[in-house]
Design a protein around this nucleic acid. Structure first.
Lengths: 346, 346
DNA sequence: GTTAGCACTCGCCACAATAGAGTGCTAACA
DNA sequence: TGTTAGCACTCTATTGTGGCGAGTGCTAAC
């Protein structure tokens, strides 16, 4: 759409966005000519600004204030003006050292990643662990809690552990359980959960299994274990850090933020979407999108092991975020975590 | 100390505390005579209030405002004036119905309890899962993640699942692992983690195990698995609900709250303390205590299974909390959860 | 096409004035 | 002696006012 902006307009828009990111305050025409050395007078800048406002890239809170980039303005800035620098070797190794993953289980790692992301960015870190159904089966174990109640423990290739309580036939003996476990571990090894589900429902349909009582029980147990296990684990960290940002000066704004961060459902939906894409994703909240994130931005990226377990991590903050700083951090962290998962499973 | 208050003083203190709980605003002498029908004039009430202030039970924000109970005042109110009513059968069954525990694993239950506590009280719910070391051993499983890395899964009697990644001798075969697992499950069954630890260190000391390679490996693996596993799991829910309380009208106060709720370490320490006592505990934050909870109160109670796994749940809110409403809720919820854990393990 | 100049708008801040709530004290009363 | 009415006083919160500063849009000159 707006690629037809001429160079001067682009420069001015860029200057406004960057000044606004730095100051959180409306940017006036004089301030721009002072801080940046375009050879232009404030009046000329004002003309351009009026144009940009008409195009919906800027807006002014009131007549006699400076301009603020709109969501659309930020979008344009990110799409065409922003130059994301790579991290220097030094920064990379510093980031690498922030993470001490050794001897940590997956959950702790996710938590830790969120903390570091938040600490580095001064915004809020989000990490969504690999989805259950995107993982690859490694092992299943049954532990009897009481006569008719079993604890099923599922371990994925990447070391993700899920457990669930299911009801089971009370007459099942421990011996049976062990056999069932062995059978399933043999049969399902190396399949993704999706494949496992397909295989199970396939076999359950076949009549002949009716004659193999044990196999039948094995199948129905594992079916129960894998059912409804959709909930994603999400880790949110560093909300209080972000409250220092000037956009959260009023109680209402803070309340809204806390509510947003507490509604895991929304966050999961959000991170879920970015999971379909590759590389760093930027989602800018505005009233127009169906997902209610007005005023916030999300920078996210996927991480994955080669075995296909995909998780998402990112940083959520005010639209006025320091994109040039946060994007490379998110990008590199995702790479780090991916590599770490690879090494973990070898 | 202050039991020497005469009846009139007690009545007036009670009235002030209760009015303050209801309104969150300083209570004046006139307001009291109007709302409560002591046969006293405001002037007389003022005299009593001056006495109470001198005793440190009340304070006034400034000369021409009403009085506010101090932390000490609240403490006195709770200790000697507050009458905790029991929940009616109706309320109890309603509370019981709020919880749908069936088919939930322990973690989800804890989460759910926090949510309900927060929803009912309008404050923030805290739940600390039973401490790892207070649980009773049920089963241990080893899952190989890579050559030298094992995932250890530990299940307690109450269905608490913990897992941890440990480094192990790369030459260990799967066959060995299985034997080790069987051996440990046989040996440690029914012991508390504390007992397990004692037993392990005892046996490791004995020289003769040096000759039994397998046993030695079993012991050192389980030692590694049980080490440093101290971190308590804590679940915090409903912060945004509490932000509606008038004490959180200013950004500073909200920030402090969020910081407090984010510092799990503090919360764990807090809940840890109340774990040593029986029944409902009330902790009132003031500058005098070593734990920095100034301005907040915690109402907590333990839950446990007979097997000794003890957890703590409670509600944290402003000192001006509706104690008469929250205490029975916390109390009964703790009973419910205990009963639930019993049934779970049968 | 660019710029200087100017009138105008609007939010912000400091200040004063006012109303209201509550206190402490004193003197009168039962 | 305990209680109460009355009163002067204190302090906060609110409202209104005027000036300041930053920024704009328009126009006319370069």
């Amino acid at each position: 759409m707006a690629d037809e902006l001429n160079e001067r307009s682009q420069n001015i828009l860029e200057a406004i966005v960057e000044d606004y990111i730095a100051s959180a305050e409306p940017v006036g025409s004089r301030a721009i000519t002072r801080r940046h050395s375009f050879n232009l007078s404030p009046a000329s800048v004002r003309n351009v600004m009026a144009d940009l406002e008409e195009m919906g890239l800027l807006c002014s809170p009131h007549t006699s204030a400076g301009r603020i980039p709109t969501a659309k303005g930020f979008q344009y800035y990110i799409d065409t003006l922003l130059q994301v620098r790579d991290l220097s070797q030094q920064e990379k190794s510093k980031l690498r050292k922030s993470y001490r993953f050794s001897g940590m289980k997956l959950e702790d790692i996710m938590q830790e990643v969120g903390r570091v992301l938040s600490g580095l960015s001064k915004y809020t870190g989000l990490v969504m662990a690999p989805k259950f159904s995107s993982t690859v089966f490694r092992q299943i174990e049954f532990v009897r809690l009481s006569k008719g109640r079993l604890l099923v423990i599922y371990v994925s290739e990447s070391g993700l552990v899920q457990n669930k309580v299911i009801d089971a036939d009370p007459t099942l003996t421990d011996r049976h359980l062990e056999q069932i476990g062995n059978y399933l571990n043999r049969e399902l090894n190396g399949l993704s959960i999706q494949e496992v589900r397909a295989k199970l429902s396939q076999e359950l349909k076949e009549d002949r299994i009716l004659y193999d009582q044990l196999k039948k029980q094995a199948l129905s147990l594992s079916c129960a274990a894998l059912q409804d296990e959709v909930e994603n684990q999400i880790f949110v960290s560093g909300a209080s850090l972000m409250l220092e940002q000037p956009e959260f000066a009023s109680p209402q704004q803070i309340k809204r933020l806390i509510q947003t961060l507490e509604s895991k459902k929304l966050l999961i939906e959000l991170l879920d979407r970015s999971q379909s894409a590759q590389g760093v994703q930027i989602f800018i909240g505005s009233e127009n999108t169906d997902i209610n994130l007005d005023g916030y931005s999300l920078i996210s990226s996927n991480f994955s092991s080669q075995k296909g377990a995909i998780g998402t991590l990112g940083v959520i903050g005010p639209v006025r975020m320091d994109y040039s700083q946060v994007i490379p951090i998110v990008d590199f962290t995702a790479q780090l975590v991916s590599r770490m998962l690879e090494r973990e499973i070898e």
